[in-house]
Design a protein around this nucleic acid. Structure first.
Lengths: 143, 143
DNA sequence: AAACAAATCTGGAGCTACTCCATGTTCCGG
DNA sequence: CCGGAACATGGAGTAGCTCCAGATTTGTTT
Protein backbone atom coordinates (compact mmCIF):
# COMPACT_ATOMS: atom_id res chain seq x y z
CA UNK A 1 0.00 0.00 0.00
CA UNK A 2 2.86 2.34 0.70
CA UNK A 3 4.95 1.13 -2.23
CA UNK A 4 6.42 3.99 -4.21
CA UNK A 5 3.97 4.57 -7.06
CA UNK A 6 6.83 5.17 -9.44
CA UNK A 7 7.88 1.51 -9.50
CA UNK A 8 4.61 -0.15 -10.32
CA UNK A 9 4.66 -0.36 -14.07
CA UNK A 10 4.58 -4.16 -14.69
CA UNK A 11 5.89 -4.19 -18.21
CA UNK A 12 6.85 -7.01 -20.54
CA UNK A 13 10.20 -6.95 -22.27
CA UNK A 14 8.44 -6.06 -25.50
CA UNK A 15 6.82 -3.05 -23.88
CA UNK A 16 10.15 -1.92 -22.50
CA UNK A 17 11.75 -2.34 -25.89
CA UNK A 18 9.15 -0.13 -27.53
CA UNK A 19 9.25 2.44 -24.77
CA UNK A 20 13.02 2.83 -24.72
CA UNK A 21 13.99 2.03 -28.27
CA UNK A 22 16.46 -0.61 -27.13
CA UNK A 23 16.06 -4.02 -28.73
CA UNK A 24 14.85 -6.98 -26.73
CA UNK A 25 18.19 -8.68 -27.23
CA UNK A 26 20.02 -5.63 -25.98
CA UNK A 27 17.86 -5.41 -22.87
CA UNK A 28 18.54 -9.05 -22.05
CA UNK A 29 22.21 -8.45 -22.78
CA UNK A 30 22.39 -5.58 -20.32
CA UNK A 31 20.84 -7.81 -17.72
CA UNK A 32 23.38 -10.55 -18.39
CA UNK A 33 26.30 -8.17 -17.92
CA UNK A 34 24.88 -6.78 -14.69
CA UNK A 35 23.84 -3.35 -15.85
CA UNK A 36 20.19 -3.76 -14.94
CA UNK A 37 18.55 -4.00 -11.53
CA UNK A 38 17.08 -7.38 -10.64
CA UNK A 39 14.11 -8.35 -12.75
CA UNK A 40 11.09 -10.15 -11.38
CA UNK A 41 9.62 -13.07 -13.26
CA UNK A 42 6.13 -14.37 -13.79
CA UNK A 43 5.43 -17.93 -12.67
CA UNK A 44 6.21 -18.93 -16.23
CA UNK A 45 9.55 -17.18 -16.28
CA UNK A 46 8.70 -14.07 -18.30
CA UNK A 47 10.46 -10.93 -17.17
CA UNK A 48 8.40 -8.19 -15.49
CA UNK A 49 9.82 -4.70 -15.55
CA UNK A 50 9.14 -1.58 -13.51
CA UNK A 51 9.73 2.12 -14.03
CA UNK A 52 13.11 1.69 -12.40
CA UNK A 53 14.23 -0.45 -15.31
CA UNK A 54 12.99 2.10 -17.79
CA UNK A 55 15.02 4.79 -16.05
CA UNK A 56 18.10 2.60 -15.94
CA UNK A 57 17.79 1.91 -19.65
CA UNK A 58 17.41 5.61 -20.36
CA UNK A 59 20.52 6.26 -18.31
CA UNK A 60 22.46 3.65 -20.24
CA UNK A 61 21.30 5.05 -23.56
CA UNK A 62 22.18 8.62 -22.61
CA UNK A 63 25.57 7.57 -21.32
CA UNK A 64 26.30 5.51 -24.43
CA UNK A 65 25.38 8.51 -26.54
CA UNK A 66 27.93 10.47 -24.53
CA UNK A 67 30.52 7.92 -25.54
CA UNK A 68 30.86 6.00 -22.28
CA UNK A 69 31.69 2.31 -22.42
CA UNK A 70 29.52 -0.23 -20.67
CA UNK A 71 32.33 -0.74 -18.19
CA UNK A 72 32.34 2.96 -17.34
CA UNK A 73 28.58 2.99 -17.02
CA UNK A 74 28.77 0.01 -14.71
CA UNK A 75 31.23 1.91 -12.54
CA UNK A 76 28.93 4.88 -12.25
CA UNK A 77 25.89 2.74 -11.56
CA UNK A 78 27.65 0.67 -8.93
CA UNK A 79 29.35 3.71 -7.41
CA UNK A 80 26.18 5.77 -7.27
CA UNK A 81 24.10 2.95 -5.86
CA UNK A 82 26.73 2.32 -3.23
CA UNK A 83 26.66 6.07 -2.61
CA UNK A 84 30.39 6.30 -3.20
CA UNK A 85 30.49 7.99 -6.57
CA UNK A 86 31.13 11.67 -6.01
CA UNK A 87 30.55 14.58 -8.29
CA UNK A 88 34.30 14.94 -8.73
CA UNK A 89 34.70 11.33 -9.79
CA UNK A 90 31.88 11.71 -12.21
CA UNK A 91 33.39 14.85 -13.66
CA UNK A 92 36.82 13.33 -14.07
CA UNK A 93 35.28 10.33 -15.80
CA UNK A 94 33.43 12.63 -18.18
CA UNK A 95 36.61 14.59 -18.78
CA UNK A 96 38.50 11.42 -19.62
CA UNK A 97 35.72 10.57 -22.03
CA UNK A 98 35.87 13.98 -23.63
CA UNK A 99 39.60 13.64 -24.19
CA UNK A 100 39.09 10.30 -25.87
CA UNK A 101 36.45 11.77 -28.12
CA UNK A 102 38.66 14.69 -29.10
CA UNK A 103 41.40 12.23 -30.01
CA UNK A 104 39.00 10.19 -32.10
CA UNK A 105 37.79 13.29 -33.91
CA UNK A 106 41.35 14.32 -34.68
CA UNK A 107 42.16 10.90 -36.06
CA UNK A 108 39.06 10.91 -38.20
CA UNK A 109 39.80 14.37 -39.53
CA UNK A 110 43.29 13.27 -40.51
CA UNK A 111 41.80 10.26 -42.23
CA UNK A 112 39.31 12.45 -44.06
CA UNK A 113 42.00 14.84 -45.21
CA UNK A 114 44.11 11.97 -46.53
CA UNK A 115 41.08 10.48 -48.22
CA UNK A 116 40.27 13.72 -50.02
CA UNK A 117 43.85 14.06 -51.20
CA UNK A 118 43.75 10.52 -52.47
CA UNK A 119 40.48 11.12 -54.28
CA UNK A 120 41.76 14.32 -55.86
CA UNK A 121 45.01 12.72 -56.91
CA UNK A 122 43.05 9.91 -58.47
CA UNK A 123 40.82 12.31 -60.36
CA UNK A 124 43.48 14.65 -61.69
CA UNK A 125 45.68 12.18 -63.51
CA UNK A 126 45.05 11.06 -67.06
CA UNK A 127 42.57 8.26 -67.07
CA UNK A 128 42.26 5.36 -67.36
CA UNK A 129 45.47 4.77 -65.40
CA UNK A 130 46.12 7.26 -62.67
CA UNK A 131 48.27 4.78 -60.78
CA UNK A 132 47.23 6.03 -57.40
CA UNK A 133 46.05 2.62 -56.31
CA UNK A 134 49.17 1.00 -57.65
CA UNK A 135 51.34 3.43 -55.76
CA UNK A 136 49.36 2.81 -52.61
CA UNK A 137 49.62 -0.91 -53.14
CA UNK A 138 53.36 -0.51 -53.55
CA UNK A 139 53.47 1.21 -50.19
CA UNK A 140 54.71 4.45 -51.71
CA UNK A 141 52.17 6.79 -50.19
CA UNK A 142 52.96 7.27 -46.56
CA UNK A 143 51.48 9.11 -43.60
CA UNK B 1 70.34 -14.39 -61.04
CA UNK B 2 67.78 -12.34 -62.87
CA UNK B 3 65.31 -12.33 -59.97
CA UNK B 4 63.90 -8.89 -59.27
CA UNK B 5 66.20 -7.48 -56.60
CA UNK B 6 63.28 -5.87 -54.87
CA UNK B 7 61.88 -9.18 -53.63
CA UNK B 8 64.94 -10.69 -52.06
CA UNK B 9 64.71 -9.54 -48.50
CA UNK B 10 64.42 -12.84 -46.58
CA UNK B 11 62.99 -11.49 -43.38
CA UNK B 12 61.68 -13.21 -40.29
CA UNK B 13 58.30 -12.24 -38.92
CA UNK B 14 60.04 -10.40 -36.10
CA UNK B 15 62.00 -8.32 -38.58
CA UNK B 16 58.84 -7.49 -40.49
CA UNK B 17 57.10 -6.54 -37.29
CA UNK B 18 59.85 -4.10 -36.38
CA UNK B 19 60.09 -2.69 -39.88
CA UNK B 20 56.40 -2.06 -40.31
CA UNK B 21 55.24 -1.43 -36.77
CA UNK B 22 52.55 -4.10 -37.07
CA UNK B 23 52.57 -6.71 -34.34
CA UNK B 24 53.54 -10.29 -35.06
CA UNK B 25 50.05 -11.42 -34.21
CA UNK B 26 48.56 -8.88 -36.57
CA UNK B 27 50.82 -9.98 -39.42
CA UNK B 28 49.81 -13.60 -38.94
CA UNK B 29 46.20 -12.48 -38.69
CA UNK B 30 46.37 -10.68 -42.03
CA UNK B 31 47.77 -13.82 -43.58
CA UNK B 32 44.97 -15.92 -42.12
CA UNK B 33 42.30 -13.65 -43.58
CA UNK B 34 43.94 -13.65 -47.01
CA UNK B 35 45.27 -10.13 -47.09
CA UNK B 36 48.90 -11.11 -47.55
CA UNK B 37 50.62 -12.72 -50.55
CA UNK B 38 51.80 -16.30 -50.08
CA UNK B 39 54.59 -16.66 -47.57
CA UNK B 40 57.49 -19.08 -48.01
CA UNK B 41 58.57 -21.24 -45.10
CA UNK B 42 61.90 -22.54 -43.89
CA UNK B 43 62.33 -26.31 -43.61
CA UNK B 44 61.31 -25.88 -39.98
CA UNK B 45 58.14 -23.97 -40.79
CA UNK B 46 59.19 -20.42 -39.97
CA UNK B 47 57.83 -17.75 -42.29
CA UNK B 48 60.19 -15.99 -44.68
CA UNK B 49 59.12 -12.60 -45.98
CA UNK B 50 60.18 -10.48 -48.94
CA UNK B 51 59.91 -6.82 -49.83
CA UNK B 52 56.57 -7.54 -51.41
CA UNK B 53 55.15 -8.38 -48.02
CA UNK B 54 56.55 -5.21 -46.55
CA UNK B 55 54.83 -3.21 -49.27
CA UNK B 56 51.57 -5.02 -48.77
CA UNK B 57 51.68 -4.36 -45.05
CA UNK B 58 52.38 -0.69 -45.71
CA UNK B 59 49.40 -0.59 -48.04
CA UNK B 60 47.17 -2.15 -45.41
CA UNK B 61 48.37 0.27 -42.78
CA UNK B 62 47.82 3.29 -44.99
CA UNK B 63 44.40 2.10 -46.02
CA UNK B 64 43.40 1.37 -42.44
CA UNK B 65 44.52 4.87 -41.51
CA UNK B 66 42.20 6.13 -44.25
CA UNK B 67 39.39 4.31 -42.51
CA UNK B 68 38.94 1.39 -44.88
CA UNK B 69 37.78 -1.93 -43.48
CA UNK B 70 39.76 -5.09 -44.06
CA UNK B 71 37.00 -6.25 -46.35
CA UNK B 72 37.33 -3.12 -48.48
CA UNK B 73 41.08 -3.49 -48.55
CA UNK B 74 40.69 -7.08 -49.65
CA UNK B 75 38.47 -5.93 -52.49
CA UNK B 76 41.03 -3.44 -53.69
CA UNK B 77 43.90 -5.89 -53.39
CA UNK B 78 42.04 -8.65 -55.21
CA UNK B 79 40.64 -6.25 -57.79
CA UNK B 80 43.95 -4.62 -58.49
CA UNK B 81 45.81 -7.89 -58.68
CA UNK B 82 43.21 -9.23 -61.06
CA UNK B 83 43.59 -5.96 -62.95
CA UNK B 84 39.88 -5.32 -62.70
CA UNK B 85 39.80 -2.51 -60.17
CA UNK B 86 39.43 0.71 -62.05
CA UNK B 87 40.17 4.24 -60.96
CA UNK B 88 36.47 4.97 -60.84
CA UNK B 89 35.76 2.04 -58.59
CA UNK B 90 38.57 3.08 -56.33
CA UNK B 91 37.29 6.64 -56.20
CA UNK B 92 33.75 5.63 -55.40
CA UNK B 93 35.02 3.38 -52.64
CA UNK B 94 37.00 6.24 -51.17
CA UNK B 95 33.99 8.52 -51.45
CA UNK B 96 31.86 6.02 -49.57
CA UNK B 97 34.53 5.92 -46.93
CA UNK B 98 34.63 9.68 -46.67
CA UNK B 99 30.88 9.84 -46.14
CA UNK B 100 31.13 7.35 -43.33
CA UNK B 101 33.88 9.33 -41.69
CA UNK B 102 31.91 12.55 -41.88
CA UNK B 103 29.00 10.82 -40.20
CA UNK B 104 31.25 9.49 -37.47
CA UNK B 105 32.71 12.93 -36.88
CA UNK B 106 29.25 14.43 -36.58
CA UNK B 107 28.22 11.81 -34.06
CA UNK B 108 31.35 12.36 -32.02
CA UNK B 109 30.89 16.11 -32.05
CA UNK B 110 27.36 15.72 -30.75
CA UNK B 111 28.65 13.45 -28.02
CA UNK B 112 31.34 15.94 -27.12
CA UNK B 113 28.88 18.81 -26.93
CA UNK B 114 26.63 16.82 -24.65
CA UNK B 115 29.58 15.80 -22.52
CA UNK B 116 30.69 19.40 -22.07
CA UNK B 117 27.19 20.44 -21.07
CA UNK B 118 27.09 17.64 -18.56
CA UNK B 119 30.46 18.59 -17.13
CA UNK B 120 29.47 22.24 -16.86
CA UNK B 121 26.17 21.40 -15.23
CA UNK B 122 27.99 19.23 -12.75
CA UNK B 123 30.47 21.97 -11.96
CA UNK B 124 28.04 24.87 -11.55
CA UNK B 125 25.83 23.42 -8.88
CA UNK B 126 26.58 23.71 -5.20
CA UNK B 127 28.89 20.93 -4.23
CA UNK B 128 29.02 18.37 -2.85
CA UNK B 129 25.67 17.31 -4.30
CA UNK B 130 25.01 18.63 -7.75
CA UNK B 131 22.62 15.80 -8.51
CA UNK B 132 23.57 15.60 -12.14
CA UNK B 133 24.48 11.95 -11.89
CA UNK B 134 21.33 11.22 -9.97
CA UNK B 135 19.25 12.96 -12.58
CA UNK B 136 21.00 11.07 -15.34
CA UNK B 137 20.52 7.82 -13.46
CA UNK B 138 16.87 8.69 -13.13
CA UNK B 139 16.67 9.07 -16.88
CA UNK B 140 15.75 12.75 -16.63
CA UNK B 141 18.37 14.12 -18.96
CA UNK B 142 17.49 13.35 -22.52
CA UNK B 143 19.07 13.72 -25.96
C1' DA C 1 78.59 -31.49 -30.72
C1' DA C 2 75.71 -30.37 -26.93
C1' DA C 3 73.37 -27.09 -24.43
C1' DC C 4 70.74 -23.16 -23.93
C1' DA C 5 68.02 -19.07 -24.77
C1' DA C 6 65.41 -16.55 -27.95
C1' DA C 7 62.33 -16.66 -31.59
C1' DT C 8 58.70 -18.79 -33.82
C1' DC C 9 55.00 -22.20 -34.56
C1' DT C 10 49.86 -23.71 -33.89
C1' DG C 11 45.26 -23.70 -32.21
C1' DG C 12 42.23 -21.65 -29.48
C1' DA C 13 40.12 -18.30 -26.34
C1' DG C 14 39.02 -13.46 -25.19
C1' DC C 15 37.80 -8.65 -26.04
C1' DT C 16 33.33 -4.92 -27.12
C1' DA C 17 28.60 -4.37 -27.71
C1' DC C 18 25.64 -6.26 -29.65
C1' DT C 19 22.73 -9.17 -33.13
C1' DC C 20 20.66 -13.25 -34.84
C1' DC C 21 19.21 -17.94 -34.69
C1' DA C 22 16.79 -22.44 -33.49
C1' DT C 23 14.13 -24.67 -30.51
C1' DG C 24 11.06 -24.80 -26.80
C1' DT C 25 7.69 -22.65 -23.47
C1' DT C 26 4.20 -19.28 -21.94
C1' DC C 27 0.59 -15.96 -22.47
C1' DC C 28 -3.70 -14.23 -24.01
C1' DG C 29 -7.94 -13.50 -27.04
C1' DG C 30 -11.73 -15.79 -28.81
C1' DC D 1 -9.27 -25.24 -25.05
C1' DC D 2 -6.73 -23.83 -29.02
C1' DG D 3 -3.97 -21.14 -32.04
C1' DG D 4 -0.74 -17.65 -32.67
C1' DA D 5 2.02 -14.12 -30.79
C1' DA D 6 5.28 -13.13 -27.49
C1' DC D 7 8.66 -14.77 -24.68
C1' DA D 8 12.68 -17.97 -22.83
C1' DT D 9 17.39 -20.12 -23.38
C1' DG D 10 21.82 -21.26 -25.13
C1' DG D 11 24.90 -20.69 -28.54
C1' DA D 12 27.13 -18.72 -32.56
C1' DG D 13 28.55 -14.74 -35.34
C1' DT D 14 30.40 -9.89 -36.24
C1' DA D 15 35.47 -6.80 -36.71
C1' DG D 16 40.04 -6.57 -35.82
C1' DC D 17 42.79 -7.74 -33.45
C1' DT D 18 45.36 -9.51 -28.83
C1' DC D 19 47.00 -12.90 -25.74
C1' DC D 20 47.93 -17.45 -24.19
C1' DA D 21 50.01 -22.28 -23.54
C1' DG D 22 52.70 -25.69 -25.07
C1' DA D 23 55.58 -27.45 -28.68
C1' DT D 24 59.20 -26.71 -32.00
C1' DT D 25 63.00 -24.27 -34.45
C1' DT D 26 66.89 -21.27 -34.74
C1' DG D 27 71.09 -19.20 -33.63
C1' DT D 28 74.78 -18.57 -30.25
C1' DT D 29 77.92 -20.08 -26.85
C1' DT D 30 80.77 -23.40 -24.72
Amino acid sequence: MSEPQSSRANLSIGDVSELTGSSIDTIRYYERVNLMPEVERTSGGHRVYTDEHIRRLAFIRHSRALGLSLEQIRQVVDGTEGGSYSCEEWQSLLNLCAEGIVRQIDDLRTAERNLREMIDACGQAELPNCRVVERLLAGEIPQ
